[in-house]
């Protein structure tokens, strides 16, 4: 244990995801020995992120104004809507440069163990967006785990009767990898989802 202020900092850092007690200590002492200007910049960034960043009123991605950059972009099509769990999933899909439609960020997945049901996600808002009639295809890009699959099934059951095409991202082998190194679960699913060439 260190005295007062430095221990406070270590405790706060230790509460961050992925930061253990050892890392927290290292970061704290790095900050202590760093240039004051650098530390001020970090402190300002931390303060500003809570003050300025908010959620887009349309898709609930992180944004700095009423609507996020993607929702404001007139070049994108309204016909395809991609549903993801978290804002970082938007970034991941954007990196591909393949998708030119819009997003909808649910804010998580259905997870009864953590007490998260459909009411805790932005599903009502999604239904309102779909109600406008502009969307022709809904892409379900929730995580390929138990909770993500359940969320996808739930949405598919709700949306299909509306006459909107519903698709799910394929799960399968990583590109550029060797078949022999794929784990048996991934390979098993890839087998199940095989297609004619």
């Amino acid at each position: 244990m260190y005295e007062g202020t430095i221990q406070d900092l270590i405790d706060e850092l230790g509460r961050l995801p992925g930061v253990g007690p050892k890392s927290a200590q290292r970061i704290a002492f790095h900050i202590l020995s760093a240039d004051p200007a650098d530390v001020t910049r970090l402190a300002n960034a931390l303060r500003k992120v809570k003050d300025l960043v908010r959620f887009c009123t349309v898709c609930f991605n992180v944004a700095e104004s009423e609507q996020c950059r993607i929702c404001r972009d007139a070049r994108r099509t309204d016909e395809v809507l991609c549903v993801v769990e978290e804002p970082k999933d938007v970034v991941a899909i954007e990196r591909t440069g393949e998708f030119r439609g819009r997003y909808h960020v649910l804010g998580g997945a259905i997870n009864p163990l953590e007490g998260i049901g459909p009411d805790n996600l932005r599903i009502r808002e999604l239904m309102q967006r779909l109600g406008s009639g502009a969307v022709r295809e809904l892409i379900l890009a929730t995580d390929p785990n138990t909770e993500g699959e359940a969320t996808a099934t739930y949405l598919a059951l709700m949306v299909k009767p509306m006459g909107i095409a519903v698709t799910r991202l394929a799960s399968g082998l990583p590109v550029g990898g060797d078949l022999e190194y794929a784990d048996e679960i991934t390979l098993g699913r890839a087998f199940e989802g095989r297609r004619a060439v």
Binding site: I110, P112, G117, P118, T146, E149, A150, T153, Y154, L157
Partner: peptide, 10 residues
């Protein structure tokens, strides 16, 4: 229990 059908299916 609105998601129970989903869990049933899975």
């Amino acid at each position: 229990l609105s998601t129970l059908d989903v869990w049933d299916a899975h």
